[in-house]
């Protein structure tokens, strides 16, 4: 949460729910999640950070992501959650503090020049919402061209990205080139990484040693020879293992398969339709 903008002298700017014009402080939720500011404090006095506690349990103190809320600095707190018990004409600083009453979230000094009658209805705020200093030195703050209570301090064009893309790249070639480069770069890096990792795990020395042992056996020699020496080592291993398996399980040794699948029916009460169907009453003759 950030203090985002304030107006000291309000003569013909925004009105509160009572139709009155008074100083206001805008707070901005700079995060992308809802934040409940109930229980936090607003103050104009560094010696008394707990001057005004924002009431808890009010649904309106739950500030949605990237949304603003206005507090009226009219020194009339009995008017509701959003009316604080001080005004900005007498204040030197605005301090926003966490619910513990000690940890300062954000603070901003009030330039005495802003209290001059020539500055009526001119607000002071962050140039870009939520961006800038939180220590009170005013970095990122400026006198704004227009007051913008509860709205963005700088205009944001929602359709900026696609619009900009259309102007920059009307035929889509730049996007195609750029995006394909990114896809290729991502997958090329993965390629190189896993190529290096595979070198660690393949251990060529051990494999060579193993293959010598296998080639020394007559059966292993026979298989590659039969295929013109083209069979890979893995195929040789597979052939040997398959042959051994079939030799062990003699009933699997078939020169020709019959391709006939025999299903042996087994009787059970669960698959007996006579057991499952509703029986008709027998008629006595």
């Amino acid at each position: 949460m950030r203090l985002n903008e304030f107006l000291v002298i309000n003569t013909n700017d925004f009105q509160d729910d009572y139709g009155q014009q008074s100083s206001w402080i805008e707070i901005f939720n700079a995060s992308y999640g809802t934040v409940d500011i109930g229980g936090c404090y607003l103050s104009d006095d560094p010696a008394n950070l707990k001057k005004y506690q924002i009431p808890g349990g009010d649904i309106l103190t739950k500030i949605k992501p990237r949304q603003h809320v206005i507090f009226w600095a009219d020194n009339q707190p009995f008017r509701g959650t959003f009316h604080v018990n001080f005004d900005l004409l007498g204040a030197k600083e605005i301090i926003f503090t966490k619910g513990d009453g000690k940890s300062i979230i954000d603070r901003i000094k009030i330039d005495p020049a802003l209290k001059d009658s020539t500055m009526a209805n001119i607000s002071y705020g962050r140039v870009e919402d939520g961006i800038g200093s939180i220590t009170g030195d005013g970095e990122g703050w400026a006198v704004l061209d227009r007051t913008s209570a509860s709205t963005n301090n700088s205009m944001i064009d929602k359709t900026a990205k696609p619009q900009r893309m259309k102007e920059m790249d009307p035929y889509g070639w730049m996007m195609a080139a750029l995006a394909m480069s990114v896809v290729f770069i991502a997958l090329i890096i993965l390629y190189f990484l896993f190529k290096q990792i595979s070198k660690i795990y393949t251990r060529p020395d051990k494999e060579k040693g193993d293959s010598k042992e296998v080639v020394a056996t007559p059966s292993a020699k026979a298989v590659p020879a039969a295929k013109g020496g083209k069979a890979s080592e893995d195929e040789v291993y597979a052939a040997i293992v398959a042959a051994l398996e079939m030799w062990k399980e003699s009933n699997q040794l078939h020169d020709e398969e019959s391709f006939v699948l025999t299903i042996v029916p087994t009787h059970s009460a669960w698959n007996d339709k006579h057991e499952l169907l509703t029986k008709l009453p027998l008629m006595k003759k």
Binding site: G172, I188, F194
Partner: peptide, 29 residues
Amino acid sequence: PKLFLIGAAAQFGIFGAYAISLAFGFDPA
């Protein structure tokens, strides 16, 4: 791992279709 690159190459379909869609008057999004 070199098969990764084939997976990348086939994504030309996405961006080819993107360019064709722009030519047919669809907005970038």
